[in-house]
Design a protein around this nucleic acid. Structure first.
Lengths: 117, 117
DNA sequence: CCGCATACCTAAATGTCTGAGGCATAAGAC
DNA sequence: GTCTTATGCCTCAGACATTTAGGTATGCGG
């Protein structure tokens, strides 16, 4: 079984993390598990991308983090929560993503009338 | 009037160029003009990204380039043509892009049943 | 002869991701 | 009792596309 999962296009990952956190606070491992479950065979989610991304979002003030002891597992985990700014950023980045996809589709689908050169 | 055009997500540009060349040979300036016309207000296409991209595609054997004198303008221009490999690459990168967008949509739309963490 | 569109190009800085590693704890199998 | 698996965190070098900010030169209209 070869791994055919796609690499992330750079710059697209943060919105996925923000969206995940919009369902409620979560720690890193849970976030990656959730994205993995839904993106499944198609996206390659590396932890080497996740943790820096969380730091990035934290330093931008879009999420806050605090260490907690998980009730079920009794393990320590760093739980991230979306801030008000984070929600705004999520909305705007979501809109940007859709705009991007639509613009892309337009270029991919529009046929030129005559020659290009 | 502020420029609200979106930066390119890294790795997504080549397929746009390949697609443009699938309509027929073109030189760099014509390619950027074509993409700009269709992406319009939404994508920011910089020449600093275009020419390196063309070099990249050329070195991957996906396009070939030759200097020509344009009939209309009488100006010299480097005209790029899609190769057979380029067509294959276009198809596969197109499929990848669509797969990526769908996977993304899945993550963005799927609601979790319970708590994440 | 000035400005604008055409047409090409370069290079440093930027920033995200890949790939590969590491540490530690809990639960369950054997 | 110890081995494996899943959980949970992390770091860092290297790769690499893009941004930003320049540059050259020609043809044409006024």
């Amino acid at each position: 079984m070869t791994d055919t999962r796609l690499h992330l296009f750079k710059g697209t990952f943060d919105v996925l993390v923000l969206k995940t956190l919009s369902w409620g606070p979560a720690h890193g491992y849970a976030i990656s598990r959730w994205i993995r479950q839904n993106a499944g065979e198609d996206l390659k989610i590396e932890e080497g991308a996740l943790y820096p991304a969380l730091r990035r979002l934290e330093s931008r003030g879009l999420v806050t983090a605090q260490w907690q002891t998980m009730e079920e597992s009794g393990r320590a985990a760093r739980v991230y929560t979306l801030t008000a700014d984070g929600k705004k950023a999520l909305n705007s980045e979501l809109a940007d993503w859709q705009r991007y996809v639509r613009a892309f589709a337009r270029v991919l689908e529009t046929r030129p009338d005559g020659a290009l050169a």
